[in-house]
Design a protein around this nucleic acid. Structure first.
Lengths: 337, 337
DNA sequence: ATTGGCACTGTGGACCAAGGAGTGCCAGGA
DNA sequence: TCCTGGCACTCCTTGGTCCACAGTGCCAAT
C-alpha cells in the first residue's frame, strides 16, 4: 500500500509543514526535497496518502497538511530522535549543575526545557511513593500542635502541622521521634503503612493518642493523598502558535494540576519517550496539542516525569531529543546529590 | 477647569468603555447615563477632557477611550472600592477556611482571586524577613552533610543542605541545634544576623568549623538572599483580552519572578490598596496592563502582598474590592492558624 | 509507472461604493 | 453665559466584484 516513496513524501510534507506552517503543495515538495520525481507523481502519491488519512487539504486548491494519524506515522516510523549538539549539552550541564537544592533543580529544569524546545515545559517532582524516608522530624510548636517534617532521599521535604488535641511534652515528642525514625528511616514510602502498623502498641498508653494522630497524618499526607507536585514554564511560547482550539482552552488545561499529572501519567510506550498527538489526548482543550514526555530517575528506577506541550505541528525529532537529554541530566544530577 | 459635569462624563466614559470595550460616543453616553444634558454638550466637555489628556479618540470619527491619565483620575477621585456581596464573602471564607497548611492557603488564595476578578492573580508568600523563627532543626544526613530546616511562625518552612566538609557526630549536631534554638527561637529573621554573631565563640573549638558553616548557610539562605516565593494563577483569563502590547510580552513578563516581585513591591500608596496603571508600570511588557495590589498580614504587621494583573480597561472598583477582601481574609486565616 | 499539459477551483488581496457612527462647529434660544 | 439642534464632514466598516495565484485532478503520451 504505502511504498517507500509515499513514506518519503509524507515525511517531506511533515517536515515542510512544521517549518513553514503553511499547507505544502506538490511543486514545493519537488523543489525542496530530492525525491527524484515530478510534481505530478507526487500529486498521485498525495491522493493515496489522503485516502489513507495521513494528510488532508484545508480546501480544494490548497496544499496538504498532516493529520494526527500522519504525525503518528512520522513519529513512529519516519523520524529518529535528534541528539542535541555538543554546545547544547554543555549548556544543559552547566545550567543544571549550579542548582543547590531540589526546588532549584526542578525550577531550573523546567525553564531549561522550555527554552530549549521553545514550548511549554512540565516537570514533576520526584514521586514520593518511590522515594525512601531519610528522616522524620517532629517539632513541638507549643500548645497542642506538632509540626512533622519528612525528608526523603531525593531531597524532597514535606511538612504538615498536626493538631494533637492534647498537650504534648517535649519528652513524649522526642521519644516518638526516635521510635518513628528507628521504624521507617530508609523505608520506601510505599512500605510505610505496614511498617508503622504495630507502632502505636509500643507507645506508652499515656502518649498513644498523640502517636495515633501523628501516624494518621503521616499516612494521609504521604501515601494515600500522594499529591504530585508539578511545575510548568514557557507558557509565553504558546503565544507564537495559533491553535485550532482556543488558546484559552489550552491555558486553562495547563492550569489544572490534575490534567498535567494525567498528561504525563499516560504511559503508552514502555521505553523512555512517550508522544501523545492531538486527538490522542484525553483532555479536550489539548486536542490541538501534542505532548512529549519521558521518565527521569536514578539508575533504572523511575522517579517522575518531565514533558513538553506544544502544537501538533511541532518539531518532533528535536523536541524528543531535548526531552530525552534533559531527563537524563536531571537523573544524573539527582544521583550525584 | 474640570467642573463636576466633566468629571461625571469622564466617569461615564470609563464605565462604559470597561463594559463594552468599544470607544464610547456622546449619544451613547447621553442615553445610558443620567447626565441631564444633550449629546452636543457632552461633546463639548469631551473636547476639554481630550485637551487635558484624560481621553483620546482612536481616529477622527470614533468615540472616546480613556487614557492612562483618565483611568488614574477615575481611580483616585471618581470611584470607590466596591465591597463584595455577602454570598461572595461567604464563598471566600469557606474556600480559604478549608486549607490545612501554608502552601495550601497560598494556592487557594491565588486561585480564588483569579476566579473572583477573572484576571491574573499573584500571591506572595509571607515574607521571611518579617517573620520570626519558630524552630531550627538540624538533621545529620550521614557523611558530612546536614540538612537545616527553619520553621517560621507564619508556617513557612525553608530547608537547605549544608556540606560540612568534615564529619559530624550526632552529638555535635544536637548541641548545635540546642544552642541555635536557644539563641534565635522567637527572634525576627531580620534580627538573626546580629543575634548569632557571637555564637561561634561559644562552641567548643573542635566543632567550630561546622558551626560556622551552618551559620553562614543560615544567614545566606534566609536573610541576604531573601528570595521571595510567588505564585500565580488565572493566566487563561488573559486570552479573553486583546492587548496593545503582544500577549506574548505579557506572558513573558509574568513568568519572570523578579518582575512580579517588583510589581508588587512598588508601594506608592501607604494605605492598603495600590493601583498601577498602564505606562506607570516599569516593565515594558506590562505597559498595557494595570496592577492592583494590597498588603496582607496579621494584625497591623504586613507580611507580604497579593495582587491582580489585568488590562488597563479593567473594572477597578470591583477588582479593588476583591483584592482588599481577599487580603483581609488571608490575614485572618493566617492569624487563626 | 511517470510525466507534461491543461482545465478547474477556492482563497486572498485590491478596489470601490454605500452606510453609519461620531465628530466639530455654528447659530439660535433659555 | 451656557446649552442645544442642525449640519457638513471624516473615517471606519461592510459587502461586493474582480482578478491573480497556488494547487489540484485528470488525461493522453511516453
Amino acid at each position: 500500500m504505502l511504498n517507500e516513496r509515499k513514506l518519503a513524501v509524507l515525511r517531506a510534507v511533515v517536515e515542510d509543514f512544521v517549518n513553514t506552517n503553511e499547507p505544502v503543495g506538490s511543486r514545493a515538495l519537488a523543489d525542496r526535497h530530492p525525491l527524484g520525481v515530478s510534481p505530478a507523481t507526487i500529486r498521485n502519491d498525495m491522493v493515496a496518502l489522503e485516502e489513507d488519512g495521513y494528510i488532508a487539504q484545508p480546501h480544494t486548491s490548497a496544499g496538504r497538511v498532516p493529520t494526527d494519524k500522519g504525525y503518528r506515522l512520522f513519529v513512529d516510523r519516519l523520524s529518529s530522535v535528534k541528539p542535541l549538539s555538543a554546545p547544547e549539552r554543555r549548556a544543559i550541564e552547566s545550567f543544571l549543575g549550579g542548582a543547590v537544592d531540589l526546588d532549584e533543580i526542578v525550577a531550573r529544569t523546567v525553564r531549561l526545557l522550555a527554552q530549549l524546545t521553545r514550548q511549554v515545559a512540565i516537570v514533576q517532582y520526584p514521586s514520593l511513593t518511590r522515594s525512601s524516608v531519610q528522616h522524620v522530624e517532629l517539632v513541638p510548636l507549643g500548645g497542642q500542635r506538632i509540626m512533622m517534617v519528612v525528608i526523603t532521599d531525593t531531597g524532597r521535604v514535606e511538612q504538615r502541622v498536626i493538631d494533637g488535641l492534647e498537650a504534648v511534652s517535649e519528652h513524649a515528642v522526642s521519644d516518638l521521634r526516635a521510635m518513628l525514625n528507628r521504624a521507617i528511616a530508609g523505608c520506601y514510602l510505599s512500605d510505610v503503612p505496614e511498617t508503622v502498623d504495630d507502632l502505636p502498641a509500643q507507645v506508652p498508653p499515656e502518649h498513644r493518642g498523640i502517636a495515633v494522630s501523628v501516624l494518621s497524618v503521616l499516612l494521609e499526607s504521604l501515601v494515600e493523598r500522594h499529591e504530585e507536585k508539578i511545575v510548568l514554564a514557557g507558557t509565553a511560547n504558546l503565544a507564537a502558535v495559533d491553535f485550532a482550539a482556543s488558546f484559552r482552552d489550552v491555558l486553562e488545561a495547563l492550569e489544572e494540576n490534575m490534567v498535567l499529572i494525567r498528561l504525563l501519567g499516560e504511559e503508552k510506550d514502555p521505553s523512555m519517550l512517550t508522544v501523545s498527538i492531538g486527538e490522542e489526548n484525553f483532555h479536550k482543550g489539548l486536542r490541538s496539542t501534542s505532548v512529549v514526555s519521558a521518565d527521569y530517575g536514578v539508575g533504572n528506577q523511575s522517579l517522575a516525569k518531565i514533558g513538553v506541550v506544544g502544537p501538533t505541528r511541532m518539531d518532533y525529532p528535536g523536541t524528543m531529543g531535548a526531552v530525552r537529554a534533559v531527563a537524563r541530566y536531571v537523573g544524573q544530577i539527582l544521583a550525584g546529590q
